[in-house]
Design a protein around this nucleic acid. Structure first.
Length: 259
DNA sequence: ATGCCGGGTCCTACCCGA
């Protein structure tokens, strides 16, 4: 395994953010970039734009909502296009698992859990249970593993600005946080916190209420690393400058470097 | 307490996000 740069970005519509992503790829040159909330089906995904920059695309699309993809400048193989363990008829496009250079890399758009009342929250918790199981299975096989994406979880109270979320929000509820801790206890390392143990390291700022100007952000985009990859962690940080662009996504990209 | 903004679509009022 060589040095690897793996990134994640919730783009809030790839059709609205095509130019932002292309410019960022050229500037930062990740080996793999996982995208969330592409909000389209595969035929509408601007794959040619990224191919011209040397990136191959794999798309798990859905009309209007959700949708994930991965762009790679190194060869990769798709292993799963949905989260193992979910019902067969679950049509929400939120998961892609690939292998690249001996590493298993999973990109997720974890359910928000605030809509559709307790039923929506239960869907989120079940999704997290299935993800924890998948992680435990892969760790039991000693697979070098990174799970990255929009987790829709602020792990601790240090991970959201005062007043940016209600204490009962699905992103911070104890049941949500307990399931993220299960993944940590299984052996995964929160890469951003391994590099920056304390203080705000936000990855999202709401479009509303001047959240960016007030730095009223959330840390909800994460990368979890298996023990072997955690030992090789070089850097892990959001690219805050992207929030300054014209018509930005409400999330910024997060870059992880493995040495 | 609610809307704020900004995507999406049954094209335009409404759903969803976090």
């Amino acid at each position: 395994m060589r040095r690897m740069k793996i990134a994640t970005w919730n783009v809030n519509s790839i059709r609205q953010r095509e130019r932002h992503v292309a410019a960022w790829l050229e500037r930062r040159q990740p080996d793999l970039l996982f995208l969330q909330e592409i909000k389209c089906e595969a035929p509408a995904f601007p794959a040619m734009t990224f191919q011209a920059l040397g990136y191959t695309a794999e798309i798990v699309g859905q009309k209007s909502y959700n949708g994930v993809a991965v762009l790679g400048r190194i060869p990769f193989t798709v292993i799963h296009r949905s989260l193992p363990g979910l019902p067969e008829d679950d049509a929400q496009a939120r998961y892609i698992e690939v292998q690249a250079d001996g590493i298993t890399a999973i990109g997720i758009y974890l359910p928000n859990g605030n809509s559709r009342g307790e039923e929506g929250f239960a869907y989120k918790l079940n999704w997290m249970d299935r993800l924890a199981e998948r992680i435990e299975t892969l760790l039991a096989n000693d697979t070098p593993l990174i799970v990255t994406g929009d987790f829709n979880v602020a792990p601790t109270d240090e991970d959201y600005a005062k007043g940016a979320l209600s204490p009962t929000d699905a992103l911070v509820r104890s049941e949500t946080r307990a399931r993220l801790r299960r993944m940590i206890w299984a052996g995964m390392t929160d890469a951003i916190r391994a590099v920056t143990p304390e203080g705000p390291v936000y990855t999202f700022w709401d479009y509303q209420a001047a959240a960016w100007e007030r730095n009223a952000g959330l840390r909800i985009d994460h990368a979890l690393l298996s023990p072997g990859l955690a030992e090789r962690l070089v850097s892990a940080a959001p690219d805050r400058m992207e929030r300054e662009q014209q018509q930005p996504s409400d999330h910024v990209p997060v870059m992880i470097e493995i040495g």
